[in-house]
Write a protein that binds this DNA or RNA. Structure first.
Length: 332
DNA sequence: GCCACCGGTGGC
DNA sequence: GCCACCGGTGGC
């Protein structure tokens, strides 16, 4: 909402953003790049995790913004960028490493398909300087959450770290760089700090699972809440918290996004609708490239003459939901 | 019996 | 594709 003023989020530029880490999963070469010069957009938010031994914790995320001429020469890459990563949706640039390894106890999963293994945990909290683009460690989770809450309106600079590192400047080497030893995840900007006495927990799932992470809120009572619905119910049952000022706006279950793009198992293809002869859907022919699916679904679509840019740009276009049956119909 | 962790589903 | 929600379950 407040993102429009961001330099890096302007629609024109967003399309030209590159994902620096789009092939990060393959390890090696691309992992050793430093954030490149001034073309890197400043405010990626990241979280560092590690599934190593929890002594070299940390995972990182970073974000770059390339000039359009780069992209013009690599349309394939550009395609990938759009699918895999939307820098405009991220906006801010922080990263997190756990500066306190003691806090990141090794966790193990215990599922049939996952021969007991150590799960990643947040290794450190890191934020990228909006000026020099170097990653700076944030000493505590609380400080990180404080910075994250306003990262869009109040970009982070090396000077911001003077609160805990009086001497730090953009001339100092980065606290962290992206290398193969860490899992980087880009956090979402402007997430409210949890209410006093509450804790927001981020649990990284094992690689190859159906999702990257889960967020839990732990109430002062110790109760763990795992969705907005549960929070709402809990607050209704405990009006004392509401009286103290706790409100729904202080909760967000948004999870960071891993830069390793195959960390999460892809969801198998789902037909939009099961083939069903009783449904008129199978008797409707395709008329045009635009709007037909909406007709088929019996739902109003965007006005046919409404430009798909701007207000609809973030929405999926109907044709992407084409089922197998539809595809067969269309091709015949 | 609890609960942390995971998969699945539905919606957009 | 992403997100939100919630049921299931193995290990404790």
């Amino acid at each position: 909402m407040e993102r429009d003023h961001l330099d890096l989020a302007s629609p024109g530029k967003a399309d030209h953003n590159d994902i620096y880490g789009s092939s990060v999963a393959s390890r090696g070469d691309n992992m050793k790049h430093e954030p490149k010069d001034s073309r890197i957009s400043s405010r990626a938010v990241g979280i560092g995790t590690s599934n190593q031994n929890h002594k070299d914790v940390a995972a990182l995320a970073e974000e770059e913004e390339h000039n359009s001429d780069d992209e013009d020469n690599h349309s394939e890459d550009a395609q990938k960028q759009l699918v895999l990563y939307d820098p405009a949706a991220v906006g801010a640039g922080e990263i997190a490493l756990d500066a306190d390894p003691v806090n990141s106890q090794p966790r193990r999963n215990s599922f049939p398909n996952y021969a007991s293994r150590i799960l990643p945990s947040v290794g450190a909290f890191t934020v990228q300087c909006a000026n020099c683009f170097k990653w700076r460690l944030i000493p505590t989770k609380e400080k990180y959450e404080e910075i994250r809450e306003h990262i869009l309106e109040q970009p982070f600079y090396c000077e911001t770290a003077h609160e805990w590192r009086a001497e730090l400047s953009c001339d100092d080497p980065p606290d962290l760089t992206q290398d193969g030893s860490r899992l980087w995840a880009i956090d979402k900007p402007n997430i409210a700090q949890p209410p006093p006495g509450w804790e927001r927990l981020l649990r990284i799932r094992g690689e190859g699972g159906t999702r990257f992470a889960d967020v839990y809120y732990v109430a002062p009572s110790g109760k763990r809440l795992r969705s907005m619905v549960e929070v709402e119910k809990y607050l209704q049952e405990h009006p004392d918290y509401v009286a103290q000022g706790v409100s729904m706006s202080q909760f967000s279950f948004q999870i960071p996004r891993p830069l390793q793009d195959n960390y999460v198992k892809k969801r198998p293809y789902r037909p939009a609708l099961a083939p069903d002869e009783n449904e008129p859907v199978n008797r409707i022919t395709w008329i045009a490239d635009n709007g037909d699916t909406d007709l088929r679904l019996g739902m109003p679509g965007p006005p046919l003459f409404e430009p798909l840019s701007q207000s609809f740009k973030k929405k999926r276009t109907p044709s992407k939901r084409m089922s197998n049956a539809d595809a067969a119909c269309k091709s015949s």
